[in-house]
Amino acid sequence: MSRTAVIVFAGVVALFVVSWMVKAMVLADVSETNIVDAFMVTVAAFLTLAIYSFLYKDNPYYKFAEHLFVGVSAAFWMVQGFWTTIVGNLLPRLSEGLATWFQQPYQGGGYDLGVFVFPYSIMYWIPVILGSLLLMRLSPQGGWLSRWPLALIVGTTAGLNFVRYLRSDFIVQVAATFVPLFGRDPHPWQGFGHFFSNLDLSASGQFVALLSNWVIFIGVFCGLIYFFFSKEHTGAFGKASRVGIWILMITFGASFGYTVMGRISLLVGRLTFLFRDWLGLIS
């Protein structure tokens, strides 16, 4: 470590200790566990600052925070998966003793095949075996065995998605695109005379409602034409494809606007934490 790095490190440690002590004094009136609470708030604040230090340039404090995050997150998901699904759903079906030990209700019974009941205590060894085979991926020799559980995962995902996407994202969406182009409730079509004599541009008026329906119908149609690459985009087809691009550009513009909004919100959240919970600048 260079001399500068040592000085910076000493400065960070000193700042941490000072922050901890000051925070502990501030929290003394409101919390009995003020020393621990102050320590944890200071840890959270320093980890936040460590990540932000990347904005200046890559540095060991950022790398420390990044590596810590990877380690604790992986363990977090493993632990949650173990307690909620292995203990909550698997063990109580495998054995009454295990269910009792983990204080879970025993889930006996089985799959009724008509002739006899295939008990869960046998049936649920299938995911245990397949799950164990998945772990074989860590072994250089037995890696091919992990294809079996992978096949179940792939098969399940494919089977589940096939019907759901067909119904909700294809059939319903196509049906919803066939909107009335000449008005419906609350603006039923009463002829061109009525339409032009009552023409206005209010957000809830008939003109805007009709325009929306035209944009939706033509927009979806042209958008799909743009995605159709089996035919050259020339002539009328090309013009429709061009309209499709415009609709998609507006869509991406809207998405960009929302993305900016989302990213700023996260920053607001972190700065609010630093100013309120750590520094106490705001109430």
Partner: peptide, 21 residues
């Protein structure tokens, strides 16, 4: 996809801005 449509239950959503559109 998996609950609202098959079971015909109304679904309301609150989402991060990035996916709202």
């Amino acid at each position: 996809l998996f609950v609202g449509d098959p079971a015909d239950v109304p679904v309301g959503v609150g989402v991060a801005a990035v996916v709202a559109p």
